[in-house]
Amino acid sequence: MDAIDTKGTAARGVAWAEFEQEAPELAARVRARFERTLHHVLATLRADGAPRVSGTEVQFYGRHLTIGSMPGAVKARDLQRDGRFALHANPGEVTREGAEEAMGDGDAKVAGTAVEVTDPGELEAFREVGVPPGPFHLF
Score class of each variant (00 low, 15 high):
R33Q: 12
T66K: 04
G72L: 06
Y61P: 03
Y61I: 09
T37W: 04
M103S: 04
S69W: 01
D105F: 04
H40C: 12
A114E: 01
L87W: 05
P51S: 09
L123Y: 02
D105G: 03
L26Q: 13
P91E: 10
V117N: 08
G130I: 05
A111K: 10
F139I: 04
G8C: 11
V14F: 13
G13K: 02
T44Q: 02
R36T: 05
M70H: 14
A73L: 15
V74D: 02
A86F: 11
G8N: 08
A47K: 06
E18K: 14
A76Q: 03
P120L: 10
R12T: 15
L38G: 04
G104N: 05
G134T: 03
Q59M: 05
E116C: 08
G121N: 06
T44D: 00
Q21K: 11
L38T: 05
R81Y: 07
A89F: 03
V53Y: 11
E93Y: 14
P135Y: 08
A89Y: 00
L87E: 03
M1F: 12
V14H: 10
F126P: 02
T56C: 14
I4F: 05
E35N: 06
A114H: 06
T113W: 08
G106M: 07
M103E: 01
T66P: 01
D105S: 09
Q80C: 07
A111G: 10
F136A: 01
P51D: 14
M70V: 12
V14S: 15
G83H: 01
I4L: 13
N90L: 10
A47M: 15
A28T: 14
A108Q: 03
Y61W: 15
V131L: 09
R31A: 03
G130N: 09
F126E: 09
L42E: 00
L138T: 02
V129M: 11
L138K: 00
G55H: 12
R77L: 10
H39I: 13
